[in-house]
Design a protein around this nucleic acid. Structure first.
Lengths: 90, 90
DNA sequence: ATTAAACTTAGACGATTATCTAAATATTGT
DNA sequence: ACAATATTTAGATAATCGTCTAAGTTTAAT
């Protein structure tokens, strides 16, 4: 299910840090890895979850893989969050 | 940490169902329990996590405990979510 | 074709999590 | 004080999760 993928992806603090790092622009997996302490394998695992939630997009460039934030999901996230609360005005 | 408590609380689908149930108004733990399949103990566990995230408030009434949604957190959640994405205009 | 570089996949391990049963703790009414 | 009701806490168990190492895959350059 889509909604669960999203909430699950956002539940991990390191994944949120990755998302924040990507705010500054697209980066290769290696560049992001350099910012954090974990192994390439762990990073790749996080990316697979972020991709499943459609929070990031990938594009191969040479033998690098460039990751970028998929900002269009923001609407979905917002909707899901708002959906959990009764609106004061509707 | 506050942010982690919030994202963690929202990560579980059953807790999101509880939040949605509370949209219709305050309910006692028992009333909510009647809507779901798990035991009172499990429910209580979920409530403790929702409380830690400040998503619900409690009030004792007789020997019932009334749970209600704390809508003021909505702002915090929204801010946290928006914080993860670069705004198109700022 | 081989090698090197950049990621991913597979498999393992410890930590956290959701759930349960059983026992404990209020609170009210008798 | 005592019993009944409502909820929480403790302790156990199975499943999920984050991380690691080691092996595999893909691309580019020689």
């Amino acid at each position: 299910m889509k909604q669960q993928d999203l909430f699950r992806a956002l539940a991990d603090p390191n994944r949120r840090r990755i998302l924040k790092a990507l705010q500054k622009g697209s980066m290769t997996a290696g560049e992001i890895g350099a910012l954090f302490a974990f192994t390439a394998a762990s990073l790749s695992h996080h990316f697979s979850i972020l991709k499943a939630a459609d929070l990031v997009r990938t594009e191969r460039r040479g033998h690098h893989i460039v990751y970028s934030l998929n900002s269009t999901v923001l609407e979905d996230v917002s909707r899901m969050v708002l959906d959990l609360f009764p609106l004061t005005r509707r």
